[in-house]
């Protein structure tokens, strides 16, 4: 599978959304998908995260790891203080894309998305309503890394995908997986 195919594949699967990935949540929660993001906001975040850690020929990226759930959960708890900047930035990013490309960020071609993220990183969007997009970008960059490389107990790193990528095995693997096991036993 070529990288692009792989990406297109994950892109399609994410549209099916959380209902397919988290059937358990339907029973537990009134809103089955997100605690903070709207469905539209989530699609934008999923695309951003996927470009920050993309799928490659062998391993999935942020979408497969379900990083969006990590961020969503933290925005109503530990990262509450970041919730405004997320909401604001998503709106500004979508406005920017509508203005320039007449579509949403998440509907753009991958290469275009990457180009826009690079401009966000360098504060070179040239969009008067959004002077410092790098502040938001650096946040989501770190949060994506946390969701992808951290423990699945917080959402993200589904099926320990990043531990496989890093070829972590033996005692270190056991230790790194132990929080999830403890969490499962407790519930």
């Amino acid at each position: 599978m070529s990288p692009i195919n792989r990406r297109n594949f994950t892109k399609t699967s994410l549209i099916a959304g959380s209902v397919l990935f988290f059937p358990g949540c339907i029973i537990k929660e009134k809103n089955p998908s997100f605690l903070f993001f709207s469905e539209d906001e989530a699609k934008c975040i999923i695309s951003l995260c996927e470009q920050i850690i993309p799928a490659d020929e062998i391993f999935g990226g942020s979408t497969d790891a379900e990083v969006v759930y990590y961020i969503d959960r933290q925005l109503v708890s530990f990262f509450k203080h970041d919730s405004n900047i997320y909401r604001d930035s998503i709106r500004k990013l979508q406005n920017f894309c509508f203005k320039n490309f007449n579509t949403k960020f998440n509907k753009l071609e991958i290469d275009k998305q990457i180009e826009i993220i690079e401009m966000m990183e360098q504060n070179s969007l040239n969009y008067s309503e959004w002077q410092n997009p790098s502040i938001f970008f650096n946040k989501i960059r770190l949060h994506t890394m946390q969701g992808f490389y951290g423990s699945p107990i917080h959402g993200g790193n589904k099926n320990y995908i990043s531990f496989d990528i890093l070829k972590i095995d033996g005692l270190l693997r056991q230790r790194l997986e132990s929080p999830s096991k403890i969490s499962k036993n407790a519930s």
């Binding site: 946390q146 230790r175 790194l176 929080p179």
Partner: peptide, 17 residues
């Protein structure tokens, strides 16, 4: 059992508490 080995909440990173 309630506290160990989670990188994001260990005492070094303290990202999630």
């Amino acid at each position: 059992d309630n506290n160990s080995n989670d990188e994001l909440s260990d005492q070094r990173n303290q990202i999630l508490g």
